[in-house]
Design a protein around this nucleic acid. Sequence first.
DNA 1: ATTTTTAATCGTAATATTACGATGATAAAT
DNA 2: ATTTATCATCGTAATATTACGATTAAAAAT
Lengths: 109, 109
Amino acid sequence: MGITKTEIFTNEQNQLASMLKVLGHPARLAILNYIIQQDACICTDIVEEIGLAQSTISQHLKELKNIGIIQGTIEGKSICYCINEQVWKTIQNDFNGFFNKPVSADSCC
Amino acid sequence: MGITKTEIFTNEQNQLASMLKVLGHPARLAILNYIIQQDACICTDIVEEIGLAQSTISQHLKELKNIGIIQGTIEGKSICYCINEQVWKTIQNDFNGFFNKPVSADSCC
DNA sequence: ATTTTTAATCGTAATATTACGATGATAAAT
DNA sequence: ATTTATCATCGTAATATTACGATTAAAAAT
């Protein structure tokens, strides 16, 4: 056990859930915030800014890259990370697609 | 280790992250979907609908209750769960507050 | 050529999550 | 009073996550 039974859910549910799971960590939100704010950045900056070990930040960056919300390009000795606008917007759309469903006012409670 | 260092992040980051973490599981999205669709429901129905053990569903319901997005009222022998509209909207606002930040087109990559 | 800088990866410990069956608790039905 | 129905909680196994230090890899600077 301990393994999510993805096969019993819809693709929509699985995909949105996996996005939200990655976003559901304060370090990763902080990283996204920082990248947006800086408009460009390298890993060492983030490490200093956030205050986690370099390897930990690298791991979080990897997860963010996995869902495509950020991308890194090699810039000489360092790596420049930035937001992938398209994925960013897709996530926002998917989220709102889910949350815009009308919640009826006369529900049971 | 293995414990998230919440103390180094902002309240905003921690709060949004914990919401998204709860939403980041397909079963919990499926439960929310079902409650909205039914407009009222009890746990047994969800168990049949979703196909996880009753105790597992109960655990997921507990987590959803913890963030306030659903609430349950005792209805005789069973319990009626419904969406808390206010929390629902707050989550949506917080999420969009984060995601509406402009992602500049001329970023580094 | 060697050293330095930067970031990824490996190994690992601590903790959290997911799921299930079994058991408990409470209210309704018999 | 006993049984049934409904849901929560407990105990537990399997797996995943978080974080760190150590190591590796690759490019730049010396």
